[in-house]
Amino acid sequence: MAYVDYADEVIFAGKSHKKFPLILNNEHIINRLTLKYFLSQRVLWSEGTLHTYTKHVCDFISQLELENKECSFDHIDEYWLEAYANQISNRNPGSEGYVSQLLSSVIDFLFWCENNNYCKNLIGVTSKFKIKVFQTKNGVTHNLVKYYNKQGASPKIAPRDEWIETVLSEEYFKSEDLEIRFNLMVEWGRRCGLRAHEICALSVDQIPSRETLEQNIIEKNNSFIELSVTKGKKKARIPVSGILLKKTLDYIESERNQLIKKFKNEARLQRKAYIPPQQVFISSTTGQALHRRTFSNQLRSRWLQALENGNLTQDQYVWVHGLRHRFATDKLKKISQLKHIRDPREVTKTLTRHSHSSTLDIYTASIHLEDMND
């Protein structure tokens, strides 16, 4: 079965790409067609989009491997695509939105293959093709993508603070240092609405001095930090409580510094150079910046542990992006209660750094679900 691995570095057209995703087969041979596809899209996609497409296309390649060793497209048509969609749905019950996303990625990949002559008469916008698609402003889509998108799962309630606290109370890490790091990262998610990759990208240079922080705490003022790594690579300036920043600075000067000393000592013994990363949160295993997937997996593992211990139920779901949902939902609730603000959604859109106020529909639905359950 195909699997995803990551090259430490890929240099293409003179530009270096770190942790570039690759799809390999059971014999550890790189799928060259998918590599060409990802390289062709590297300028258009963000890092997060690239990793998402990689997972989706890998699922598709795995399915082809089960059917023929060569992974050819010869037998693929509308009926095959529908059967594949049903299989994904059966594997992921209640995740119709995921089925739609995966199918969309597969359609995009196949359409690229058709346009670059890696297949012929397989997919196109007329009936002469075995798979008929429709043009959109962003590319092409298929009726199955639209169908599963409409069947999408009902909105989830943003994880309540008490659910998050329950997850945090679970005994998970053997080290107190790791516990402090994890709790701090969770706070950046739910108090500031940062996404996982934004939390992991926070740098030491972004944290204000202790003197500035203590003054802001006394005056009960927020400090502002500039985010350089965001969704869509748009720079943003966000307010952060002095208390959260002080906790972060304490971590940097204590637990983080101890970890850096450990890796420097190990490197010295091995006669190697160790250059600490600029990021605030570093891995206790590699000494490099903690990856967002590691953070996401840690939170999920703790939620599953709370589930197993009977402290939470399946409906009381806590996930990394849910921390941002909690932040956005709380902001929308609070601002909606202020009579002097004419358009709470527009203000909330700015605070949560969304491009369109329609994106807030999911948070409005979350508030409705919360009110129903209260």
Results as ranks from 00 to 15, higher is better:
Lys55Asp: 14
Asn149Lys: 07
Ser254Thr: 13
Thr141Asn: 03
Arg195Gln: 04
Arg292Gln: 14
Ala201Trp: 03
Gln135Cys: 09
Lys150Gln: 11
Cys119Ser: 05
Leu245Thr: 02
Arg256Gly: 04
Arg292Val: 07
Arg91Leu: 08
Tyr317Thr: 02
Leu24Thr: 02
His291Trp: 05
Ser100Glu: 04
Thr141Ser: 07
Gln316Glu: 15
Ile157Asn: 04
Gln278Thr: 08
Ala196Met: 03
Arg237Ser: 09
Gln316Gly: 06
His356Met: 10
Lys220Trp: 02
Thr230Glu: 00
Leu304Ile: 04
Asn221Leu: 11
Ile243Pro: 07
Glu82Gly: 02
Asp343Glu: 14
Ile76Lys: 03
Lys261Tyr: 11
Thr286Arg: 14
Asn68Arg: 10
Val347Met: 11
Lys231Tyr: 00
Arg271Leu: 11
Ala153Trp: 03
Glu214His: 13
Phe129Asn: 13
Leu103Val: 00
Ser95Tyr: 11
Asn265Trp: 04
Val57Tyr: 01
Val57Met: 02
Glu9Asp: 12
Ile11Tyr: 08
His340Val: 14
Leu244Met: 11
Ser95Cys: 12
Gly310Trp: 09
Trp319Leu: 03
Tyr172Arg: 03
Arg353Asn: 11
Cys200Trp: 07
Leu269Lys: 11
Thr350Phe: 13
Met1Arg: 04
Glu162Leu: 08
Asp77Trp: 09
Lys130Cys: 12
Gln135Pro: 15
Lys18Gln: 09
Trp163Ala: 01
Ser284Trp: 08
Asp5Trp: 07
Val125Tyr: 02
Phe173Pro: 02
Ile157Tyr: 05
Thr141Asp: 00
Asp5Val: 13
Val4Phe: 11
Leu290Gln: 09
Leu110Pro: 00
Val186His: 06
Lys264Gln: 14
Pro155Met: 01
Val186Phe: 09
Thr34Ala: 10
Pro276Cys: 06
Gly189Glu: 02
Arg42Tyr: 10
Asn297Ile: 04
Lys174Phe: 10
Glu65Lys: 10
Ile88Thr: 01
Lys15Leu: 07
Ser254Leu: 13
Pro276Trp: 06
Gly139Ile: 00
Asn26Pro: 06
Ile217Tyr: 07
Tyr6Phe: 15
Asn86Gly: 09
Asn221Thr: 05
Leu22Thr: 05
Thr350Ile: 15
Tyr172Ala: 04
Lys128Ile: 12
Ile164Pro: 01
Phe60Asn: 05
Tyr118Val: 04
Gly124Met: 06
Ser357Asp: 10
Ser336Val: 02
Asp5Gln: 10
Leu202Val: 03
Ile225Asp: 05
Phe20Tyr: 06
Asp177Tyr: 12
Val320Phe: 05
Ser154Gly: 08
Ala201Pro: 02
Gly48Tyr: 06
Leu122Asn: 06
Leu312Asn: 01
Thr294Pro: 05
His291Pro: 00
Lys132Ile: 14
Lys261Phe: 12
Lys262His: 12
Arg302Thr: 04
Leu213Val: 09
Glu171Asp: 14
Gly94Thr: 00
Ala201Asn: 07
Gly124Gln: 09
Phe224Tyr: 09
Lys130Thr: 12
Asn257Asp: 13
Gly310Met: 07
Arg91Glu: 15
Thr248Leu: 07
Arg256Trp: 01
Lys174Leu: 14
Asn216Arg: 15
Lys261Gly: 10
Glu214Gly: 05
Asn311Ser: 13
Ile243Arg: 08
Gly152Lys: 15
Ile76Pro: 03
Arg191Trp: 13
Lys36Thr: 04
